[in-house]
Nucleic acid binder design. Structure first.
Lengths: 226, 226
DNA sequence: ACAAGTCCATGAGCACACTCATATATTTGG
DNA sequence: CCAAATATATGAGTGTGCTCATGGACTTGT
């Protein structure tokens, strides 16, 4: 009785609140400002690079006070992280929604995934380069393992796992194949590095590299064993 | 004539300076201060972590002015990098100087190398952990590729190449084996991560992991091909 | 042993990312 | 429709890593 009542009294208002949508001025403004911050930051990152872009400049370009930026993003880096989230989400979506790929061989799906990511990044190449340099920051090791980026990595790795499950007979998993998605994440980072340094027209070298390495990798995965 | 004079006047003093070794007060002091900075920084990194350690605190503990720190290291991170340089150099030396390893199988050499590195790092585990978190800093990708750390990586990769050449018949290189040292560098970073999260007594899990993965890796390298 | 030259410790100062108390704008409740 | 409650934009302030002009300590040449 009490429990049921509690449940009702708690769920009702919530549902009501969510169902009703006055879209108050506040919410509108919030969304608009957030968008303006991201746009300003991205544009500045592109032209000046990450380090040389100050939060003050971002705020100024977005037409808000400097402090306001930090009501929307906890750190300057979070703004950039947001950008990479878009990148991953968009690439995953583009592979998911492509019916032609549904029954394509695994290496083609993976190629499409990475390709979509690089296409997304292309206009921001300078900024990405800066982010790479900046990424090492402290002493030497890694950088892929930050708590903040882990969720993003998780989403990515999960999707790769889906693709693998779809294409590989379950009984075929080699002792190492459970690592495959994680390895692919690192592989992607390597490919990104390759791409950044690739000055061939149309980034041909990168595409060739992807083609070749994915063939080898997938066939290794399939007939497995050492 | 003039050129020769110039050459002489320029080279003579240099050679003389290097041949003679008065070990002036200046040089003594410089070495001492450098050592004090590294010691202070390391001690603070250990107790407070990397971020919470201010350069002011390092200077204070070393008994010098804050600005002086930057006469010895370009950035705070360079101080930490210096620490990892020691780590790599010491590990390489320990493998080189161990006569028992001279004719040991490849996987044993590699195990010894990584083991020496981890032993060196053991007392500073907390600081390393902090450095890892800190390493990702900006958006998402990498961090191993900083220009500054490249020289260190190069030294490491070069040594691994030596070990491989020593153990693998030259005619046996598979199409991928030229990548092996670079891959090993990444493998090492992965092992380091594993080690950091390994709470088993005596880091047994890490040792077991190294053992197993190195066997697999080396045998893959040897009989090569997919 | 002295003067000229060179090195380098110094600490006030700078620009930056980020915080916080306050003011202001918006929503809510009656 | 107004007052209380709430959300949030604001920008001066804080502590940070790092720079730089200066003077004083050391070295060199004679």
């Amino acid at each position: 009785m009490t429990i049921r009542k509690k449940l009702l009294s708690k769920t009702k208002p919530r549902v009501a609140a969510k169902a009703k949508r006055p879209i108050g001025k506040r919410a509108q403004n919030k969304a608009a400002i957030r968008k303006r911050i991201v746009a300003s930051a991205l544009s500045l990152f592109q032209t000046k690079g990450f380090d040389a872009t100050t939060t003050k400049a971002i705020a100024r370009k977005a037409g808000i006070a400097e402090g306001t930026v930090f009501n929307y993003f906890r750190t300057k880096e979070d703004i950039a992280l947001h950008f990479f989230e878009q990148e991953v989400d968009q690439a995953i979506a583009s592979v998911r929604e492509n019916p032609r790929l549904r029954k394509a061989p695994l290496e083609e799906k993976l190629f499409a995934l990475v390709h979509a990511q690089l296409e997304f990044l292309a206009p921001y190449e300078k900024f990405i380069g800066a982010a790479f340099i900046h990424a090492l920051k402290p002493a030497s090791p890694l950088g892929i393992f930050s708590h903040r980026a882990q969720e993003l990595r998780h989403r990515y790795v999960g999707f790769v796992q889906e693709l693998l499950d779809e294409s590989l007979p379950k009984n075929q998993h080699t002792p190492l194949s459970f690592l495959a998605p994680e390895v692919f994440w690192i592989y992607y980072l390597g490919a990104l590095l390759f791409w950044l340094h690739d000055s061939s027209p149309g980034k041909q070298h990168t595409l060739a590299f992807l083609d070749r390495s994915l063939s080898i990798g997938v066939s290794f995965l399939k007939q497995g064993k050492r």
